[in-house]
Design a protein around this nucleic acid. Structure first.
Lengths: 215, 215
DNA sequence: GCGCTAAGGTACGAGTAGTACCGTACACAG
DNA sequence: CTGTGTACGGTACTACTCGTACCTTAGCGC
């Protein structure tokens, strides 16, 4: 009585699923190849035939954990929409899944290709698009100058949030910090990109504006 | 003929030095306790009597690698001083020493205490102070509104630079990106914190300004 | 000189990534 | 239906690492 022998896609799915389960049970640090193999009902050979190393497997498996991001909020004003987006991101990052994502990001920090795949699986593209959309709606409402729509501006709040996570250790970022990021940085920045602003004609020798380029 | 036996501080310095050498020779990943012990001419016992684990040793050893940060530049205008500071940081981060620092930051990301020690050894405090100083001088020159002096504002460019490193893999951040950070984010932000600015009286329901608090 | 502390030496436990080898089930061709 | 190749399952193994245990011996203060 030999058990049925899976092959190809079926086996691959079983491995990915087992890896995802190990990942959420023990984190990346605790995800060992032996245990993934055992949980998938196979052996390490089948894994190493498909992925070159543990990290690559974990990055692919992470896709099974991340849920689809919700559409951008529609609060009706820039501040509240930015805050909503930021709070949602904070919740995601501080969740168990977010902890795994941070673990993987750290582990993949010297492998650009895996980093890319990981960002895909984490839906970073859609998140960025959401920020741009929020800015565009603010412009349409007359709440912000058209120049505020700029990929680097849109990325600022998330970058600062990431920075807070890097600065602190593990725990989630308190809400006051999110409010401060929005009120002390994001909104002044958006405002400042209107042609007016303080000292628009004063000292700082700013040459012709460089053209925008998405990262 | 038994060799002389070092004790106390002398031995501790020898261990730290050996660890620092291993660190710069092979990075944190390649710094094994056995090799540190051998290089220091001692054994692992002497190390584990002083540090609880490999990471703690590496964090302390890192101090022997990081050089003192130079005083903030005095270019005479905000843009050039900010750019100088940012370029210097970029050079540091992309240097071999910077690579080790990033490795350690990633490894210590879930141990707030080590993270703190590491930031001390890396001179993050003085760097932050330099940004505040640059802002203060800009205000004194009449180049920026007094409200621009805010710890969170001062931290923005470094946060964005960090973000670029996290986004990309290893290589250094191109200079255009630094220029863009300054021109598209930092300067507009500083400008926007002048009371004026675009749509100062428009929609966004911004309540009383929260008080500043240093991170 | 004596004794306590801490050093040196060595060995070991426990755990992990990744590799090698072999027999066999499964898919597919003829 | 039979032969053949691929890839799966099982198991063992290499190489390496952190961290600990244990014992002997050298310094240092008294």
């Amino acid at each position: 009585m030999t058990a049925r022998r899976r092959r190809g896609e079926e086996l691959e799915r079983a491995i990915l699923r087992a890896a995802a389960e190990e990942l959420s049970a023990s984190g990346y640090a605790g995800m060992t190849m032996d245990r993934v193999a055992r949980r998938a009902g196979t052996n390490k050979n089948a894994i190493y035939r498909r992925w070159p190393n543990r990290l690559a497997l974990a990055v692919d498996a992470y896709a099974h954990l991340a849920e689809e991001p919700a559409p951008p909020p529609a609060a009706g004003n820039l501040r509240d929409e930015a805050l909503a987006l930021l709070r949602r991101a904070n919740a995601t990052w501080s969740s168990p899944t977010g902890a795994i994502l941070r673990e993987l990001l750290a582990a993949a920090s010297d492998e650009p290709e895996l980093l890319d795949r990981l960002r895909d699986r984490a839906g970073a593209g859609r998140l960025n698009a959401a920020w741009v959309e929020v800015l565009e709606r603010a412009v349409a409402r007359g709440e912000a100058p058209p120049a505020a729509v700029h990929p680097r501006v849109a990325a600022v709040p998330m970058m600062l949030l990431r920075g807070e996570y890097a600065l602190r250790g593990v725990p989630s970022v308190p809400d006051e910090v999110l409010v401060e990021i929005v009120d002390e940085v994001f909104l002044p920045l958006v405002r400042g990109r209107g042609a007016g602003g303080w000292g628009a004609t004063s000292g700082s020798s700013r040459p012709g504006a460089p053209s925008a380029s998405a990262p």
